[in-house]
Structures are given as structure tokens and as C-alpha cells.
Amino acid sequence: MAEYRAGKAGINAEAQARINSKYNNDIAHETLEWIKSITGEPQNTSGDVDNLYEVLKDGTLLCDLVNKFQEGSVKKINKSTMAFKCMENINAFLEAVKKLGVPAQETFQTIDLWEKQNLYSVVICLQSLGRKAGNFGLPSIGPKEAEKNVREFTEEQLKAGQNVISLQYGTNKGQQTGISFGNRRQM
């Protein structure tokens, strides 16, 4: 586990510090309160890094959570504290949330939680799952899910749009020769 690893140094330490700086205790507390409202656990909903890690590291609470969304999402929850069993729980949770509609880019890797590498991404995943909760009749957290806004255009409207020149192509207003960068090279 994380406490037996050597500390990171150099650029790796800087990268880890940058990842750790994104973590927000208030959002983590809100997330743990939301989990408690659905599952009845954990008792301590403090948002500090160590508490979040202790509550979620074995993956059993995460598996219980997704089973509240859809019964049987995780068929076998390992109660063992052996490393590979806990990591199986976390992996089963990740597979289940993808099926529940959490985008892959908002999930985390098993090692992020198990080795306490990136708890910020764990909270992001849980917040994303929290947005989906309303679709399953459960209390939700975070911003409301966006609704689809499909637009239908006629062929005439599509052809008219092809004649419009986008400003993304640039402009030379004010200069006849286009945009010039810096001074000319003197020879």
C-alpha cells in the first residue's frame, strides 16, 4: 500500500504536488455526505484526504453504492482486506459506473485510489456518478445533467450556411498585408 513506498523526488514530486493541489476538502465532504444519504455509511464524512482514503480504499462502500443504483451491478463484493481483493472491488465499481453512464474520462484508475495517487480523480468520478443519480430515482449532487438539444436544419439552411465565412479563418482588417509579427529582420 501507499505507506510502504519511497517518496517521489524531482519532477515526479512536482507532478504529484500539482495533482494533490487540485483536491478540495469541501467537495470531498459533500461527496461523502451524498454517499451516506444513499448507503447509510460512512459515519465520518470529513473531507480530508486521509479520511476519504480510509473510507473508500477497500472498494466495498463503492460497490454498495453502485448496487443502490442498479441491483446486481457488482455481483460479488469481496470483504477480504487482501490487496488484490480490494482492487477487484474498485475495478468492479469502475466497470459498473461506466455502464451507468459515467464518461470514461471522468473515471479513475484503480491504482489512483488503492495507492492514494490521485484522490481528486476519485472525487470527480463520484461527482459524475452523483449527477446520474437523478436518473435512477436517487438524490443527486453537483450541477444538473445537461439535456439533449437536437436541432433540425432544412437543406436550404445548410446551403446558406456554407456561404458564410467564419471569423476563425482570420481577418486582415486594418492591414492590407495581413498580420505581421514583430520587427523585420535588418540585414
Rank of each mutant, 00 (worst) to 15 (best):
Q175F: 13
F181M: 15
Q109H: 06
N149M: 07
K159C: 12
P139G: 00
E145S: 13
D112W: 00
G161M: 14
T154S: 15
I124D: 09
G174M: 04
G174P: 09
D112P: 00
K132W: 07
L129E: 09
E155V: 14
S166G: 06
E145T: 04
Q168P: 01
L158R: 12
A146V: 05
G170C: 11
Q117S: 08
V164E: 15
L113S: 06
V123S: 06
I111C: 03
F108G: 08
N135Q: 15
K148Q: 11
Q176V: 01
G170E: 11
I179T: 12
E145A: 03
L119G: 04
N118C: 03
L167Y: 09
E145I: 09
I179Y: 14
Q175K: 13
S166E: 10
N163W: 00
T177E: 14
N118W: 06
I124T: 08
Q175S: 09
L126M: 09
E156R: 15
Y120P: 02
P139H: 00
N163Q: 14
G174A: 03
G130S: 00
V123H: 05
G134H: 00
Q176M: 06
I141R: 07
Q176Y: 02
N183I: 10
G142N: 10
Q117H: 08
Y120L: 01
E115W: 06
T107R: 11
K144C: 02
C125I: 05
I141Q: 02
Q168K: 13
K132T: 08
T110D: 09
T177G: 10
E147Y: 02
L138G: 05
G182A: 11
P143R: 12
W114R: 15
G161L: 13
R151M: 08
N118M: 01
R184N: 04
K144W: 00
P143N: 15
Y120F: 14
S140F: 05
R185L: 14
K116Y: 08
V122H: 08
L119M: 14
V122D: 04
I124S: 06
G130C: 01
E152F: 10
R151N: 13
G137T: 04
T110P: 04
R151W: 12
S128P: 01
P139I: 13
V122F: 07
I141E: 12
E147T: 14
N172G: 02
D112I: 03
V150C: 11
N149L: 12
A133G: 00
Q175R: 13
E145Y: 02
Q127D: 03
Q175A: 08
T177N: 13
E147M: 11
V123R: 01
N135D: 15
Y169F: 15
G178N: 02
S128H: 04
I111F: 10
Q168A: 09
G182V: 01
N135P: 07
K173L: 13
R151F: 08
S121V: 14
S128M: 01
S180R: 03
I141C: 05
P139W: 02
Q176P: 05
K148A: 15
I111S: 12
N135Y: 01
T177Q: 10
P143C: 04
P139E: 05
E147Q: 14
Q175N: 10
Y120G: 12
Q117I: 01
S166V: 03
Q127K: 06
T171P: 07
L126E: 04
I141S: 07
E155G: 12
